[in-house]
Design a protein around this nucleic acid. Structure first.
Length: 504
RNA sequence: GCCCCCAUCGUCUAGGGGACCAGGACGCAGCCCUUUCAAGGCUAAAACGGGGGUUCGAAUCCCCCUGGGGGCACCA
């Protein structure tokens, strides 16, 4: 494999205009994996040349999200590096210098057209059903004259002088050669009137200066990909290996997730935003595993991957160019898999905040005993309070109707509960090894079904119809509390039975 | 409207001319295990969008159609 031989330099270059989502995270992941696999560098570059769309705090959120996922970079705005600065807003002069070079070489030109005129041109083209593009007015200007006007301070942008004839062919690693006729390409703006470069120029310059060997980015760049090739060639730079990742589609597979749909997902306990995932009970390990497999595969059967596995096994060759619909139920599945893969100690650490957040007072000693019991029952960490909250309270509040045993009357249930209580009281302790045989013996003697007897105990002791294994739970709760909870259930049933009798 | 990309079970995918009456996974259904719920095991249903070629032979190569997606900003 070629990429395993030479170290790559790759970058994740988000713009701080919104939340880091799973699509961006997956792009970052693939870049990271390739860097780690080859012993190269993974660079974080902030593409903040558009101050109008800049969202305060977005950069911090990206950084936090990447770190949570375990995607640490080697060079970036917060830690520097030999090719900094790594924030494009701080590289304005660099881009201007390269733009000037293109102008001097006749490969770019000043454009003085106002946004209003441009809009009018566009509308005219649209109404004539032509594809909107710059009409080339300033392209025909005398260069010296244009230089003079620009130097005099007349507002202007700098446009790339796209060849008007012939075709441009660029090569994407996953798709092969992509050709477009140059006449359908526009004279794209390279530098805005505020003097800041647009993506096309900034990214090309940075990728060159930062010695990026592989550009792995989203497929939204495919339409302007030929332009990027053209820019590199105009400078005479060697092109990086270009890899355009497929997009993520909404679960139905019909189109991209809209802003509103993304926001509404959280109602169902899901999110495409990395910032939401932790509190929703997801493990970063699971997120990584899940997104790695949307657009990449290792073989025809391996699906469980740790980061270490991925670093070892990842390869660009196995990337899939087809769009992928997001599958959240599979996400849950991976989360369960990784929860079960954690050590008990580690899982306890991760579960604890979800318990305390719900108001439970959690002793580590008990938590460590409880964790093995819930480990294979959890799909997301936030399910822990619901499943295991009863371990961390003094009393439980069973619903009276749930205490009534299946196929038995209230009175019969009461009598059974009374008998269970007596047996439990007589036990020397409340161990799995003592309580279970005692209860099984009762089942034997009464001829009842195990589910009937155990069900009553379960509701009385845990307050729930569904719980972790009963006798293990009782051992953790301890004899004193178990007896207390059982007494309460007996009292409850007794009252109910008496009520029923008087009504009859 | 123009340009570009993509196309295997509902979804994620394996498959890169014969090994495919197409394999795995999620989900779904059934069964086993079982004190509940899980987890685990087993079984089932479920796909090569259509049409032309090329070839002795196509899911695999080519073309067209269709469908889907993305883009056409002084956003990235």
């Amino acid at each position: 494999m070629a990429e395993s031989l030479s170290p790559v330099r790759v970058r994740f270059a988000p713009s701080p205009t919104g939340h880091l989502h799973i699509g961006g995270a997956r792009t970052a992941l693939y870049n990271y994996l390739l860097a780690r696999k080859t012993g190269g560098q993974f660079i974080l570059r902030i593409e903040d040349t558009d101050r109008k769309r800049y969202v305060p705090g977005a950069e911090e959120e990206i950084i936090r999200g990447l770190r949570w996922l375990g995607l640490e970079w080697d060079e970036g705005p917060d830690k520097g590096g030999p090719y900094g600065p790594y924030r494009q807003s701080q590289r304005k002069e660099i881009y201007q210098q390269y733009a000037r070079q293109l102008i001097e070489e006749g490969k770019a030109y000043y454009c003085f057209c106002s946004p209003q005129r441009l809009e009018a041109v566009r509308q005219g083209q649209l109404s004539r059903k032509e594809s909107p593009h710059y009409d080339g007015t300033c392209r025909r200007l005398n260069p010296d004259e244009a230089q003079a006007r620009a130097s005099a301070g007349e507002p202007h942008v700098i446009r790339f002088k796209t060849p008007q004839e012939g075709t441009t062919t660029v090569t994407d690693l996953l798709r092969g050669e992509i050709s477009v006729e140059n006449r359908v390409l526009d004279d794209y703006i390279l530098v805005k009137s505020d003097g800041l470069a647009l993506y096309h120029l900034a990214a090309a310059v940075d990728d060159h200066l930062m010695k990026i060997t592989h550009v792995i980015r989203g497929s939204e760049w495919l339409p302007t990909f030929p332009l990027h090739g053209l820019i590199h060639r105009a400078f005479g730079w060697e092109e990086p290996v270009w890899v355009h990742l497929s997009v993520f589609l909404k679960p139905s597979g019909k189109g991209k997730m809209s802003k509103r749909e993304s926001a509404e997902l959280i109602k169902d306990g899901y999110s495409i935003f990395i910032k939401d995932l932790q509190s929703l009970g997801y493990l970063p390990e699971a997120v990584v595993n899940w997104i790695a497999l949307m657009g990449w595969s290792y073989d025809d059967h391996t699906e469980f991957f740790t980061m270490t596995d991925l670093i070892e096994k990842f390869s660009l060759e196995r990337l899939n160019p087809a769009p992928a619909a997001i599958n959240f139920t599979k996400f849950d599945h991976f989360n369960g898999l990784h929860i079960r893969h954690l050590s008990v100690d580690e899982l306890a650490v991760r579960v604890k905040p979800f318990l305390t957040e719900k108001g439970y007072t959690v002793s580590d000693e008990i938590l460590l005993k409880v964790t093995p019991l819930i480990q294979e029952r959890l799909h997301t960490l936030d399910e822990a309070p619901e499943i295991a909250g009863f371990f961390f309270v003094d009393e439980v509040q069973p619903a009276v109707e749930e205490l009534i045993v299946k196929d038995m009357s209230i009175h019969q249930s009461y009598e059974l509960a009374e008998r269970i209580l007596q047996i439990l009281r007589d036990l020397p302790d409340m161990k799995l090894s003592t309580a279970e045989p005692a209860m099984r013996q009762l089942v034997e003697e009464t001829g009842l079904k195990p589910a009937q007897v155990f069900g009553l105990v379960r509701v009385a002791v845990t307050g729930q119809k569904v719980s972790p294994p009963l006798f293990e739970s009782m051992e953790i709760i301890g004899k004193e509390k178990v007896i207390h909870r059982m007494e309460k259930a007996v009292a409850l049933l007794k009252r109910m039975a008496e009520q029923a009798a008087t009504q009859a």
